[in-house]
């Protein structure tokens, strides 16, 4: 438990001091929005509502990959990964600390990106803010859990930055489908469809357990 707190605290404090990862993620998310707008103009206001959920989650996903790539790269540079894996105590706590730190960063970036989206496409997120925050958090949870596991793997391969999206994206399909459908329901009808919520919860639970258990085998002895 202390290990969890230590890892989480270290990651968040490092991030707070440097702020490079969060800023890079947010700028990248904005860039994705702009590029997507140029490539496929979704319109403004009501007409954009059908396309915005998909665009929003594409931006979240790409931004999360950018941030996750740095999650373990920093440890490798400082040679802290070896120390981490030798740390006494349950390695599951290292995973949880890392995953929660990634989740916090991603959630912050999501809040920023959503605000920018709302302004850019004339969509009012205020009335559905709480529900949307819940959907965003559930999606971010799935992305961070699987992403933390795979970034610990990708950082040990020869093409780190290339490997993470290749590993992560095909597995993220159920999370993304659930999140996009839930966002769609919220924007169009003001309610989260039950099946989408169910899918998000089930997927998060399954991937959370897999990532937690798998992390044990991913850190070197």
């Amino acid at each position: 438990m202390n290990l969890l707190r230590a890892v989480l605290w270290k990651d968040l404090v490092t991030e707070w001091r440097q702020r490079d990862r969060v800023v890079a993620m947010a700028v990248f998310a904005l860039l994705v929005v702009v590029i997507l707008y140029m490539a496929a103009p979704p319109g403004i206001g009501a007409e954009s509502q059908q396309h915005v959920p998909g665009l929003l989650w594409v931006a979240f996903t790409f931004a999360s990959i950018l941030g996750l790539n740095r999650s373990f790269a920093l440890e490798l540079e400082n040679d802290a990964l070896a120390a981490l894996s030798m740390a006494s105590g349950d390695r599951g706590f290292i995973f949880l600390g890392k995953a929660i730190a990634n989740f916090v960063l991603l959630f912050g970036v999501q809040a920023f990106t959503t605000g920018a989206f709302g302004m850019a496409f004339g969509i009012d997120f205020w009335p559905i803010l709480h529900q949307f925050a819940a959907v965003a958090a559930l999606g971010a949870l799935g992305l961070s859990a699987v992403g933390t596991l795979f970034s610990a793997m990708a950082v040990r391969t020869s093409y780190r930055e290339v490997m993470l999206p290749l590993l992560m994206l095909p597995l993220m399909v159920p999370v993304l489908l659930g999140a996009v459908r839930a966002t769609e329901g919220l924007l169009l009808d003001g309610v989260i469809p039950g099946s989408a919520l169910q899918l998000l919860v089930v997927t998060n639970a399954v991937f959370g357990i897999i990532s937690y258990l798998g992390f044990e085998a991913v850190l070197d002895e």
């Binding site: 597995l171 399909v173 159920p174 489908l177 996009v180 399954v206 897999i210």
Partner: peptide, 13 residues
Amino acid sequence: VLIPLNYFAIEMA
């Protein structure tokens, strides 16, 4: 593990 999850997800979506 993805196979059943995907089945559920894509049927739904």
